[in-house]
């Protein structure tokens, strides 16, 4: 009996937590289908009288979202692939190779994880502007081609692979390069998937940086594009929420498909994303 009550209580708490987490998403969906007056009505309403699907069409037409989509996809893909490539190489070096100053460099890199991203905005902006890269795709991509978080996560994973596997590969005639890409990477699949998804989501959602380093319309990414609904005359909440819905939809789908890897990958390293 006691066990049963504890069980029920546990589920009640979990369900409540789940509802609270979902609330903003449900509110977004609800608002995206409201008329403009309904969005600001007090007391708030959850289910609009008539579902305004036209908000989605109007929102998509309100700004060049097709271009924004392409930009987001391009930037996210290049950033993620580039970052994975550099991180896998660095993680291999930190976990397997011996070189002078390895531990000191590692500790310094570890230290950079404690610097908040916001603090890096100004120095990074200054660097880019000196390189005349502001307002280019490079500005959106280059600063994110290395991530120590990814390096660290992968290194922890690579280190858990027994040395013998490396020795076996060496004896079998594999080079370090071959071992890395044909043995270590395939067996670290779940961690690599986890950091990939985290990076895709982070890159897809990033707002501050694209806003600062780009000002031409054709370089805008989706989150920045959402500003189109906020003007001097106020915010069109219904259309903003409709646009937000289609902006986050790809990430929701991605997450649903890969959540098993994400959870496994993160719980293994004992780090939060």
């Amino acid at each position: 009996m006691k066990v049963k009550i504890a069980m029920v209580l546990r589920y009640v708490i979990l369900i409540l937590g789940g509802i609270i987490m979902l609330m903003p998403f449900l509110w977004m969906l609800s608002t995206s289908l409201k008329t403009q007056p309904e969005t600001v009505k007090i007391p708030p309403i959850w289910i609009p009288k008539q579902l305004q699907f036209s908000n989605y069409i109007d929102a998509f037409k309100a700004a060049p979202f097709a271009q924004y989509f392409l930009n987001s996809i391009f930037v996210t893909t290049v950033t993620t692939v580039g970052q994975l490539f550099t991180s896998i190489l660095a993680a291999f070096a930190f976990s397997r190779l011996n070189f002078y100053g390895k531990n000191i460099i590692f500790v310094i890199f570890l230290g950079t994880m404690m610097v908040p991203v916001e603090m890096l905005i100004i120095p990074n902006f200054v660097t880019l502007s000196k390189l005349h890269l502001v307002n280019t795709y490079a500005a959106l991509i280059v600063p994110w081609l290395a991530s120590f978080f990814t390096v660290f996560t992968l290194r922890q994973n690579f280190q858990s692979v027994p040395d013998q596997l490396y020795y076996a590969a060496k004896i079998d005639g594999a080079s370090d390069w071959h071992y890395l890409w044909h043995v270590l990477v395939p067996i670290s699949k779940s961690t690599i998937t986890a950091v990939t998804v985290l990076q895709v989501i982070g890159s897809w959602n990033s707002f501050m940086w694209p806003l600062i380093v780009t000002n031409s319309e054709n370089l805008r990414t989706l989150p920045v594009g959402l500003q189109a609904f906020t003007g001097d005359a106020g915010t069109n909440y219904a259309q903003l929420m409709a646009a937000s819905t289609f902006v986050i939809l790809p990430m929701v789908i991605l997450y649903l498909f890969l959540q098993k890897y994400i959870i496994a990958g993160i719980s293994k390293t004992g780090l939060k994303g």
């Binding site: 027994p162 013998q164 596997l165 020795y167 076996a168 590969a169 004896i171 079998d172 005639g173 594999a174 071959h178 043995v183 395939p186 067996i187 699949k189």
Partner: peptide
Amino acid sequence: VGMVFQNYALYPHLTVLENIMFPLKM
């Protein structure tokens, strides 16, 4: 040299046949 390790050190993502073929592929 050919070597067998205490924990076998087989490549977990490859099949038995692929494991045996690995040194030949190299």
